[in-house]
Design a protein around this nucleic acid. Structure first.
Lengths: 232, 232
DNA sequence: CCCGATCTTTACGGGCTCTTTATGCCGCGT
DNA sequence: ACGCGGCATAAAGAGCCCGTAAAGATCGGG
């Protein structure tokens, strides 16, 4: 099940709030609601929503102040929803740190589109998952996202072809990769006879990655078939 | 002398274009203009503006198509300026990749405020350190929010293209950035063969940022692949 | 319109990488 | 013991990629 973004709606007018929440829920976003600035700020802190929809006309605190209070500690996108359409309010809110400003009345389709924009920004901004695309065996670490290879924590420089071969072995870790497969994958079709290429590069890989290149621990030979990267 | 963002205005109605350009220039933004989709896309590729203001009602091409054509290769913020206020147009444009949508008539103050929002996004986009917006490695400090680069505490002047390359490297700090990626991101599509451009600019960057340009400590070469900014 | 800054383009030397050849090893079957 | 097939390693030459300089083109500010 995919991750469903959490959206905080701070709006005192119950009719409008229901209208907004209904629209968001129909897209299966998760929603939390507040009808006052105080509870809204509290929820923002405790639930760390992905997006905040904020009405500027709350009874207990000025809207711009709320934006500033939020921006003091979070970068979460803030979409302002306001009855006041004066240009002055828009400028002040946007400069205070709001990311968008919708004037009532507005359609739910537009609201949802602007929510998607905010989510898009969030996606390109957030740090990617750190553990993704990392392979480990013994002292050896291959990070496909960064294109780095470490041995005992020290980075090892691999040439283009060496790295290419490593990626193939990593993707098939634990399984045998045939000479054929490596040759066509790296050198394209038509060179599938040159098994010597593979031997040469496996030798350099072992020299760079193995503690004792003559007695490989990770890059294993499968005689008559191909090679295998040990997967623990 | 602070860096002045470059803004591309694509708008066929001369009166409105002058109105917009006047507003932007008054904030000492640098502005380039186009009155057709064709010239607009061309300028986007050749000048790599920081923000694009796009009128949807151009005579030579559909507005949404223009957005898609831009989004095929760049993440530059696009603010749509349109006479059509129908919700349907807004949703389509925003979903095609636009970041904001203003309906005419609009005030210049609001336009400027929304430009500032886009610039803010630009500064924090993809930054590995969202809090400070600052990247550090050794004596090198890159501040994306302020557009400053320091070496040993001393500010270093980078040209527009040099800085652009630095921002890309910073956003991918630790990872390899391919020639391809740098070329399309900086020079637009269609120049992805000119790897020499990249080499020339990496040389100047190293001359400006490295203690010993011949033996790079931060701006590392990945032969046959691209470059990597050391991340520690 | 001029001048300086910046970008584009060309040229070239040097180093890295890949390819290719050569040699020796090991295991196995005869 | 010998030959053979498959494998490992070294080493050298060729070619490609990279770094750097510098000239020409273009941009932009005054």
């Amino acid at each position: 099940m995919p991750y469903q973004p959490l959206i905080l709606v701070i709006e005192d007018d119950e009719r409008i709030r229901r209208f907004i929440v209904a629209g968001l829920s129909s897209q299966s976003y998760r929603v939390i609601e507040a009808d006052r600035a105080a509870s809204g700020l509290s929820l923002a802190g405790s639930h760390a929503p992905d997006i905040i929809l904020l009405d500027l006309g709350l009874p207990d605190r000025d809207g711009v102040e709320i934006i500033r209070a939020l921006r003091a500690w979070t970068q979460t996108p803030i979409i302002v929803v306001s009855a006041r359409g004066h240009e002055r309010s828009k400028v002040v809110a946007l400069d205070a740190g709001a990311d968008d400003y919708l004037t009532k009345p507005f359609g739910v389709a537009e609201l949802l589109a602007r929510v998607r924009v905010a989510l898009r920004h969030l996606a390109t901004k957030g740090a990617p998952l750190p553990e993704s695309g990392e392979f480990r065996v013994g002292e050896l670490v291959v990070n496909l996202a960064e294109r780095t290879v470490l041995v005992g924590g020290e980075p090892v420089h691999l040439t283009r072809t060496e790295y290419r071969i490593m990626t193939i072995l990593v993707r098939h870790a634990g399984k045998v990769v045939t000479h054929q497969h490596l040759l066509t994958e790296v050198w394209g079709p038509g060179r599938s006879e040159e098994t010597q290429y593979v031997r040469v590069f496996m030798a350099t890989l072992r020299r760079k990655l193995e503690p004792d290149p003559a007695r490989p621990r990770y890059l294993l030979t499968e005689v008559g078939v191909g090679y295998r990267l040990l997967d623990e």
